[in-house]
Nucleic acid binder design. Structure first.
Lengths: 208, 208
DNA sequence: CCAATATATGAAGGATCATTCAGGTTTGGA
DNA sequence: TCCAAACCTGAATGATCCTTCATATATTGG
């Protein structure tokens, strides 16, 4: 990671033929596989290329440097998660607090576990390189969505919606992260799935 | 990080004179500083040594390799946190659920923010190298402590104490982590400090 | 079928780093 | 005072790794 000039995190060129699209896809998959098998610290451009079945040079045709590759992977995953949360939010608009709490928790768990492999991989990248901003953005979007839902709930009478939305987002994000990172055992996950909605419900019900 | 033979994570030799103790301390401090300033990815043995005001060779007198250094830092921090949680638990033994919930949340926040600098640094290490086990252990201890407290609460009537203790530990660990990692703004921290106890109280009150 | 364009290759360059070791300096006790 | 043990130094070593580029192959429109 020879400290390249910053920025320029976008793919270097857009694929125009079918095979290059396939190559990009292969690189994406390989990146995640390597990430999970070896961790960020041992993710090398060569290893990814090898696993993807292409040469290193090919990778550099699409990504100006390693960071860009990792960044792209993260971005793609975050977008997927946010998108699915937005759809879930649509279906929850106007629901009462209890429904909202459960709906949000379940939607979040579903979104995260849908591609748990990628999600776990991303947690690894976040530390390694400056993802604070990207993750912070995602968080901010989440808070906004939750805030809107809360405001639209018929039985809501909060003095400080912002704090509550922030707290909900934090709870969701944090708990899932801890469980997925430590040991994504089926047992723990199902416990989360059972208890997390109750936590949210209890919190919303108790919050003035 | 040339993949050294595993294990041997303990300091290579014990200090016998005063100056070596000072050296070790300097190395510890320097490690955390570098961790925060540059991130795990850019933490090099030379950089740490330089910042500590010693030579690289000196570092290797006490730690067989870089991993050992990082491991020691993590271990020290985790021990401090667990210790302060144990003391807090002593004072909470036999309390009712509401007191328990608040006490645990506050104790956790205090322990984490007491040396926030180190805590944040450690989150960075965790991903980079195989800390799943160490962190998992700490988590297990937390769950046990919480479980004991819950069992001793006079107004507790839970069917599954294990799940609830697990959930509480997850909530505490996750939420603090998210806030500290994303942006440890004073505003967010004080929001956490205000809301996290309420979350725990509400959850415990609602759980059967 | 033939350019022109897109895509792929992988050896080599150049940097960075973890780790060692041969030889210094300091300390504490006899 | 003197020496053995403790402690420190930092250039050198050997790996690893990111990135480039000259060259080769594939695709497509004309």
């Amino acid at each position: 990671m020879n400290r390249p000039a910053p920025s320029l995190l976008q793919p270097r060129k857009m694929p125009q033929q079918a095979r290059s699209a396939a190559t990009i896809e292969a690189i994406y998959t390989a990146t995640i596989q390597v990430l999970l098998a070896d961790g960020v610290g041992r993710l090398t451009t060569t290893r990814v290329a090898e696993r993807a079945g292409v040469s290193v040079g090919t990778m550099y045709q699409y990504y100006p440097h390693k960071q860009a590759l990792l960044f792209a992977v993260v971005e793609r995953q975050l977008e997927a998660i946010i998108a699915s949360m937005l759809t879930a939010a649509e279906g929850l608009e106007g629901s009462d607090l209890a429904t909202l709490a459960e709906g949000l928790a379940i939607a979040w768990l579903d979104a995260k576990t849908a591609d748990m492999v990628a999600s776990r991989a991303i947690y690894g990248i976040a530390a390694e390189f400056d993802l604070g901003e990207v993750m912070g953005n995602a968080m901010k979007q989440m808070i906004e969505v939750i805030g809107r839902l809360l405001a639209a709930a018929p039985d809501a009478r909060f003095t400080d919606i912002g704090s509550i939305a922030f707290m909900l987002a934090t709870l969701l994000g944090g708990s899932v992260r801890v469980v997925m990172e430590l040991e994504a055992s089926q047992e723990h996950l199902s416990c989360l799935r059972r208890e997390l909605p109750r936590v949210c419900q209890a919190y919303l019900a108790a919050a003035t």
